[in-house]
Lab assay of single mutants.
Amino acid sequence: MASQGTKRSYEQMETDGERQNATEIRASVGKMIDGIGRFYIQMCTELKLSDYEGRLIQNSLTIERMVLSAFDERRNKYLEEHPSAGKDPKKTGGPIYKRVDRKWMRELVLYDKEEIRRIWRQANNGDDATAGLTHMMIWHSNLNDTTYQRTRALVRTGMDPRMCSLMQGSTLPRRSGAAGAAVKGVGTMVMELIRMIKRGINDRNFWRGENGRKTRSAYERMCNILKGKFQTAAQRAMMDQVRESRNPGNAEIEDLIFLARSALILRGSVAHKSCLPACVYGPAVASGYDFEKEGYSLVGIDPFKLLQNSQVYSLIRPNENPAHKSQLVWMACNSAAFEDLRVLSFIRGTKVSPRGKLSTRGVQIASNENMDAMESSTLELRSRYWAIRTRSGGNTNQQRASAGQISVQPAFSVQRNLPFDKPTIMAAFTGNTEGRTSDMRAEIIRMMEGAKPEEMSFQGRGVFELSDERAANPIVPSFDMSNEGSYFFGDNAEEYDN
């Protein structure tokens, strides 16, 4: 993207840094990872977990959730003011799984939030270390993106479920800051804005008074975040219109849905970061690795190297396929839920299948599930090659597409044709070009129609051997075009429920 120079890199967003050079960025990201790792080690000690239990991804998720809940100030305040039966607002906890007599047992633990905050700050040299908290939120978000298709949420806001490739980060909490905003897809931002506008339509006082002023500035800020994701002048001009509207209503909703559809071809720039579970960072720190000293990046080879040398386990339900569970977590670790499966298959070195073909449910185990038949197995999170994460949407291309997802959002900077089903997408653009945004709409449609099938995206960008740390010898991959490109292809993934 041309304006790259004016933006802070995501590592800076990730670490609240002012302008830093590459070495400083690597050190501050490393410091953040160190903090998460030290916190995780301490929690495993508190909970008396064995090494194996500490490497269980379900335990990692519970521990991450506990610290996120302990620092969720708004919710904590709300819980104190609106006490609900049987919930102690000062405590947080969740299921911890232990191996007892050759069987997995679930144990519900409860801790004072104050105590968890103390352990977290102690692991982070006394700081609140917001960057580390956001990092864990993005890992949870990436896992949700890989596990669930947001059909219901899309339909509720009037969008087409086939636009799911635009929904990265749709389950990120509001408090995820600049680093969170960077990884949100165009569809996620559109959905947040539509929800806001709908509230304004239904509630006369939404934009009024002292609160209304705050609401208005939040609305304009979200519009600017979305505008910054678009790469064409016409899309940005249309966002200006939406932002400046005196009284946002149905016309703005129409414009936003139009823009979301246009992003299936004229893709937005959305950041991709490899955020790993805390149970990967903990053992690495415990083994003596100093992330701050060595430096770390979320968008280069580092996460690949770390996963190459990590042992992570997962509980497996009786009829689940461990290899499929591994694929789910591998995609989440690489922030690749909406990437082209052919690119992923090449990088991973084994075939990556669409969601609907995987015999696996989510990673988390519900409290009512029976533990008797639970097994555990090693997650295979290694890769054959590594590639640089991208934040450009890439230019655009036609490809055989599917009944489910009709476009992709690249996660890796790797040369390819970008699949999208042009006739299906263009069919949504018939007729409606009147109104105050008509010239911009016409211009956007013209650009979409001009998108050429034979153009290559990320020209000359390749993948790298894991021994090639400096990215000196790019390998331009070859793809098996007979395979499906979309992950949520004609899909039956479970729906995400809060």
Rank of each mutant, 00 (worst) to 15 (best):
S376M: 02
K351D: 03
R342Y: 01
I96Q: 01
R361V: 14
F291G: 13
I445T: 14
F338L: 06
L306E: 06
G450R: 03
R74T: 04
W330N: 05
D497W: 05
N224H: 12
I445K: 08
M66F: 14
M13R: 02
N144F: 03
G93M: 11
R65N: 13
V280E: 08
P303L: 08
D160P: 03
V285Q: 04
Q168Y: 04
E369G: 11
T130W: 06
K229C: 06
T437S: 15
W120G: 08
C223W: 12
G404W: 00
T147C: 13
E210A: 02
V270H: 12
S478V: 09
E454M: 04
L341N: 06
S165C: 13
Y78D: 03
E465R: 13
N59F: 07
A181G: 14
G126L: 15
R204M: 06
Q42I: 10
L298W: 04
L49Y: 13
R162E: 07
Y289A: 12
I257R: 00
A451W: 10
G185V: 06
L418W: 00
V183P: 04
R391A: 02
F429T: 00
W139M: 09
Y78P: 00
I197N: 11
V29C: 12
A85L: 09
D34S: 12
A263F: 01
A472T: 15
F464Q: 03
A336F: 00
S269L: 07
T232E: 09
N247W: 02
K227A: 08
G185S: 09
A129H: 08
A403E: 02
P95K: 07
P477A: 05
W139R: 05
F479I: 15
R416I: 08
R221C: 04
F39H: 00
R106E: 09
L466T: 11
S69H: 09
G431F: 15
F458C: 01
S141T: 10
R102A: 11
N432A: 14
P95R: 08
E24H: 07
G288P: 08
G462P: 08
F206I: 13
R208M: 12
G185P: 02
A263W: 03
G35K: 10
R216L: 10
A403S: 13
D372Q: 08
R99C: 09
A284Y: 14
C333R: 01
N247D: 06
L47N: 06
V476G: 11
S383T: 15
Y385G: 04
R342F: 05
G288T: 07
V183D: 08
K87C: 10
Y385A: 11
P161S: 15
T378R: 15
A260T: 13
K87G: 02
D128K: 10
M440L: 05
S28N: 15
D34V: 13
R416E: 09
N142H: 11
G282I: 10
G94E: 11
E294W: 02
C275M: 07
M481C: 09
E292D: 04
E53Y: 14
G30Y: 01
L381E: 06
V352S: 11
H324K: 01
T23S: 15
E494D: 11
E369N: 04
E114D: 14
G30T: 08
L276E: 09
L226N: 09
L381A: 10
Q42S: 04
G35L: 07
L379E: 06
